[in-house]
Each structure stands twice: as structure tokens, then as C-alpha cells.
Design a protein around this nucleic acid. Structure first.
Length: 298
DNA sequence: AAGGAATACAACCGCAGGCGG
DNA sequence: TCCGCCTGCGGTTGTATTCCT
């Protein structure tokens, strides 16, 4: 027995949505919600559309707070980094970019970003656009200066080691705040997020560590640069934690290499996260104080 | 000015997995 | 436990628009 069709294909309209249909769908959902049943919705709303089509239209276009238009360099970077880590899991990537839909990101990746990274020569008009973008960015950098910052701190207690320690930290709520990059350092061992960090590890070896927020990974108090290692995890729930920002901050060149080599971090069944530490050591027990900074701009 | 190529993005399709009966 | 329905996801296609020659 075959799969039941999701709707009566002979009696549904296909193709682009008209403004009238948009209004009908929007007004219906705003008034009654989806009712948890997309299949029944078009009939109730008086639309000759498939439920799946309605759902797609709502999620990708009509729903509030959808952001259309150009992707910012920051968004580019997030997409690239996440793609390098987890591959084409567009819904997960979209979750890190408020207002962007998975469809949007997928289209953007397939039509622009991928080509950009793989080094396709842009056409003359694209070249012109890029030049204009670069000029705008330079102008913005001159205009926007940080005016104040807000700091918060959180203490994390961890008795886990190795992979479990990473999972423990990644599961923390504040990890999903997109302002912060997931970074880690070593006391003898520590996992943390962006900003300034201090820790008190069980063996007392950990002292105050500060990081240059704009150049994560560099210890501005001097000392050895942080050593990053890559770990693969099998637990899908981990991905919630990766929302903390960029698990790894790949440059375009590195991502390009990954793409050309056919590597997306780990294989399809794995999830990728970065964890740092001195090479070959386990992460120890301790309380880790994480101080987070958000810079506000004019 | 016209036709073809390239680009952008909306929408469709099929599959997998969750869930309830 | 099985089965069917429904949703969500990712790949792909369709089409309008813009640009190039």
C-alpha cells in the first residue's frame, strides 16, 4: 500500500502565492493559529492549497520577524563555520540566525556563498557589487565605535571530563546566546565561552585568564596561545550547545580547503564541536567562572 | 534592441521520524 | 508492536528578473 497523498492534488493550486492568498493565510493563522494541523488548515482558511504549501509559505515568508535581503558578513561567517562543522543541516544553521529561514540560508549557500568560497570568479556586475559592499563596510567601521559594554558572569561547576565536560558546558543555557563563541582553554583543563574567564580548578593550577574578545583564542595576558583540538560527538542534543556561537572560527580559506577536500568536519552521523585543552589531557574537576561581554555600538 | 545566460529565490517533492490510535 | 498520519527537513525544480553580448 502506497503512501497516502497529503492533499487532493487535482484540486489544489500550485505555483506562486497571490497577495490575496497571503492575506487569507496570514489573517487565519493570526486569528486561530495553525491548530497543529496543517493538512486541515487550507480548507478552514478557504484556500485551495496543499497544507504543506501553506506551512512553507507561512514559515518562509509570512511569519513575523522574517528577515529578507542581504546577508551580513557576520551571518556569512556563522553559516560558513557551521556548514564546515555540521554540513547541510539548514534548520540548525537557521536556528542560529534569528529571522532567517532554512530555505533562505540554503538558497544563499547554493547560489552565492559556496561559489564565493570555492573561488569562482564573479561576473563584472558581481565584482561591482562586492566592491560597493566593501566600501560600505569600510565606511561603517569608521562610523561605528563601541560606546559601552555590559558584563555578566556565570559560574559553571563541572565534574565531568573529556567529551562529557564539553557536553556539560555546551548544554548550559547561556551557551545558546549568539553573542558568544564557544572557546575553551586550559588551566589544567577548562571549557568556557567568550569574554574573560577565570577558573579555580581542583588542582589549583588554574589562574585568571583573559581573552581578547575580538580575537578569541589569544590570551591577552600573555602566555601560550590556546591549543584547540576537534572532537566529534554522537549526541544530537549537543547541537543545542553549538548555538553558543561558532564552535570554531574558520576562515574562508580553511572552509574552502574543507569543501575542496570533501570534509565537513566529521562524517554525517557525527556532530562536531571544538574543545580546547592541552593536548592529550583530560578535563578536570572545577568551578569555572565565565564572564561575558557584549559590546554595544552607536 | 533582442536573445541568451546568469542569478535569485519561491515553491515543490519525497523521505524520515515522531506520535497517537 | 504495528500502522497510518502528519510534520519537518533537505534536495531539486520552476520562474521571474537582471545582466551581458
Amino acid at each position: 500500500m502506497g503512501r497516502a497523498p497529503c492533499c487532493d492534488k487535482a484540486n489544489v493550486k500550485k505555483g506562486p502565492w497571490s497577495p490575496e492568498e497571503d492575506i487569507k493565510l496570514k489573517e487565519f493563522i493570526e486569528k486561530y493559529g495553525t491548530g497543529g494541523n496543517w493538512i486541515a488548515l487550507p480548507h478552514k482558511a478557504g484556500l485551495k492549497r496543499c497544507g504543506k504549501s501553506c506551512r512553507l509559505r507561512w514559515l518562509n515568508y509570512l511569519r513575523p520577524n522574517i528577515k529578507h535581503g542581504e546577508f551580513s558578513p557576520d551571518e556569512d561567517r556563522i553559516i560558513c563555520t557551521l556548514f564546515a562543522n555540521i554540513g547541510s543541516r539548514w534548520s540548525i544553521i537557521a536556528a542560529q540566525l534569528p529571522g532567517r529561514t532554512d530555505n533562505d540560508i540554503k538558497n544563499y549557500w547554493n547560489t552565492k556563498l559556496k561559489k564565493k568560497l570555492l573561488g569562482f570568479t564573479p561576473s563584472k556586475r558581481k565584482l561591482l557589487q562586492l566592491q560597493q559592499q566593501q566600501q560600505q563596510q569600510q565606511q561603517q567601521q569608521q562610523i561605528y565605535q563601541p560606546c559601552f559594554e555590559i558584563s555578566t558572569s556565570t559560574t559553571i561547576s563541572s565534574t565531568y571530563q573529556g567529551k562529557e565536560a564539553a557536553q556539560q558546558v555546551l548544554s548550559l543555557d547561556h551557551a545558546v546566546q549568539d553573542q558568544y563563541q564557544m572557546k575553551s582553554s586550559t588551566g589544567s583543563s577548562i571549557l568556557m565561552f567568550g569574554g574573560e574567564t577565570s577558573c579555580s580548578s581542583s588542582d589549583g593550577s588554574c589562574t585568571q585568564i583573559s581573552y581578547d574578545y575580538n580575537n578569541m583564542g589569544n590570551n591577552i595576558n600573555g602566555g601560550e596561545p590556546i591549543v584547540f583540538e576537534h572532537q566529534c560527538f554522537y549526541d544530537e542534543k549537543m547541537m543545542v550547545g553549538i548555538g553558543g556561537g561558532e564552535p570554531m572560527d574558520y576562515g574562508y580559506e580553511e572552509i574552502r580547503e574543507l569543501l575542496l577536500n570533501g570534509q565537513n568536519g566529521c562524517n554525517d552521523n557525527m556532530y562536531f564541536a571544538a574543545a580546547a585543552g592541552t593536548e592529550g589531557t583530560n578535563r578536570g574537576t572545577g568551578n569555572y567562572k565565565v564572564q561575558e561581554k557584549v559590546m554595544y555600538y552607536h
